[in-house]
Design a protein around this nucleic acid. Structure first.
Lengths: 229, 229
DNA sequence: GCTCCGTCGAGAGCGGTGCTCTCGTTCGAG
DNA sequence: CTCGAACGAGAGCACCGCTCTCGACGGAGC
């Protein structure tokens, strides 16, 4: 059981992280100032270092929280009872909505790695949640026999174990060719969201909502999820 | 004709930009210090402000140079005599090679936008070069009759004029459905490169070279460019 | 109940940053 | 030849991440 001291410490740690998250949402990761966070909380800047050893550790906390928030949004948008193609587009739309609602947090997660570019292992589980949701859609479609027949199997040395486990989990209807297309679609989802958010689609796309819906439908088709009917 | 003073000014401006580019390649955009650039050139930091009004203007110069360098690499990799599908994968591979050779510059171009920075119009022409190369591949394929027949035409309000002009230039074999797929493939190219460079594929992909080649072939198929044969 | 000792907050300080201002100097156009 | 514009250098401002020290508090052990 946590002592009273540990409890108030955890509380203050969360309070600092929350203030930092507000700062992040306002000015972005590059301009996030540990001193400003301390000012907002009415404490000396040196006191913050009792709770986060460095600014990067504070950012790491925000990264994990961001991945978790995005992952929760993706999971909440997935209705396992819906047709797979619709599940796919719904989850993708949820990712886009979250990114548009939290642009600076999205940039922190999927933009340029910040300083020394060493992603701690702690972030991996949280970062995997969106991929797991999309992988479950693919796996459920395979189990329901809704995926085109293939007979490719594994291609040694091409993909990692994590991809195999998440994407279909070894169902025979999901071979490495399908997994490659799923990874491409997954990358394309975030590539599309990043391009929209970072302004690379300005001039090329007018109706961003309609374009995104069309794009995600194309990607669903790429991985073999045809619209119901 | 440029006076001697203008010439030495342009020379020094280029020298500053070059030193900044070296700094960028070493420590990344976030850690690029105007003072360090001045030190490397043996001048006072305040003197640099005679040539670049602010650090962001210096970064803008590096962004334009980066887009131009990447665009030149993409153009050099395109052999108009080759089959369209092969041209597509060659250009994509050139983009990936450039990104791996210049990771920090790539992150500056396609990662998170810098804090207070809104892309000046100056960057647009340079930034368009890769898209123009890929669009030319698509247009040439259409003119050669190598694209599947479609009859969709325009979908009002969906895409911008820039996309129409670059992608096929109004050839009847390229309708908005094809253009959407081309934009998706374009976004997926940079999504894939970003994921690889930023570490999001760690654990999922083992042989990055082979995976990228497979991924780009899938994308070529998505836009209708089938391998020769 | 009292005494330690670990934890805590605060402040000063270090070296760094972007940027501004002022000061002499230098150069070139008129 | 003159005079104003451009230039380089330096000092200085406000801010940053981070470290160190110092006094105060509070819970655990005697």
């Amino acid at each position: 059981m946590p002592t009273a001291r540990e409890r108030v410490r955890a509380e203050l740690t969360a309070e600092i992280a929350e203030a930092a998250r507000r700062q992040l949402a306002e000015v972005g990761a590059a301009a996030l100032s540990l001193r400003a966070v301390a000012r907002e909380l009415g404490m000396a800047s040196s006191a913050v270092y009792r709770y986060f050893p460095s600014r990067d550790d504070l950012l790491t906390r925000l990264i994990i929280d961001g991945y978790d928030d995005l992952g929760a949004a993706a999971e909440a948008a997935d209705d396992p009872a819906a047709p797979p193609a619709q599940r796919w587009t719904s989850v993708c739309a949820a990712v886009r909505d979250w990114a548009r609602a939290h642009p600076h947090e999205y940039a922190l997660l999927y933009g340029s790695p910040v300083p020394g570019y060493t992603a701690p292992r702690d972030t991996v589980p949280a970062a995997s949640r969106v991929g797991i949701v999309l992988g479950a859609v693919l796996g459920d479609a395979a189990r329901a026999g809704l995926l085109p027949e293939t007979a490719g199997g594994r291609e040694p040395g091409l993909l990692g174990d994590a991809a195999v486990e998440v994407l279909g989990g070894g169902h025979p209807a999901v071979d490495d060719a399908v997994r490659v297309r799923a990874l491409v679609a997954w990358s394309a989802l975030f590539g599309t969201v990043s391009f929209e958010l970072f302004g690379h689609l300005v001039g090329s796309v007018e109706d961003a909502d309609r374009y995104f819906d069309r794009a995600m439908t194309e990607l669903a088709g790429l991985v073999g999820l045809r619209p119901a009917g």
